[in-house]
């Protein structure tokens, strides 16, 4: 397949994933409990990883962007774990 077509398809997919990234913000803002917000945040983090990799592919520098994506994946995981641990011990952490 021609390189230009691949670029177009990748851009369209990045657009879909961008929409999928914006939707959970509703849950982060609205979500009745703090756990709902955290679920929204972790979902957004997963989508950001894909979007970073697609951006790297579009710019032709995927080797550099993948390292950023790995660091982001680890930070996302650690953030969820740390906040979950905090909420487990905090008595008023419900909203």
């Amino acid at each position: 397949m021609e390189g230009r077509t691949v670029d177009y398809v990748i851009s369209a997919l990045a657009f879909i994933i961008g929409i999928a990234l914006l939707l959970p913000f509703y849950r982060v803002i609205k979500g009745p409990t703090v756990f709902d917000r955290m679920v929204g945040v972790s979902v957004i983090g997963t989508k950001t990883i894909i979007l970073i990799c697609l951006t790297g592919f579009a710019f032709g520098r995927i080797d550099m962007f993948i390292d950023i994506a790995i660091a982001y994946a680890m930070l996302n995981f650690l953030g969820s774990i740390v906040i979950a641990k905090y909420l487990e011990t905090s008595p008023e952490g419900r909203t």
């Binding site: 756990f35 972790s42 997963t46 680890m74 774990i81 979950a84």
Partner: peptide, 16 residues
């Protein structure tokens, strides 16, 4: 990592 993070959140939800 993703199932583990979800599990951690679920556990803290149950415990609270």
């Amino acid at each position: 990592a993703n199932p583990a993070a979800t599990h951690a959140l679920g556990r803290s939800a149950v415990r609270s």
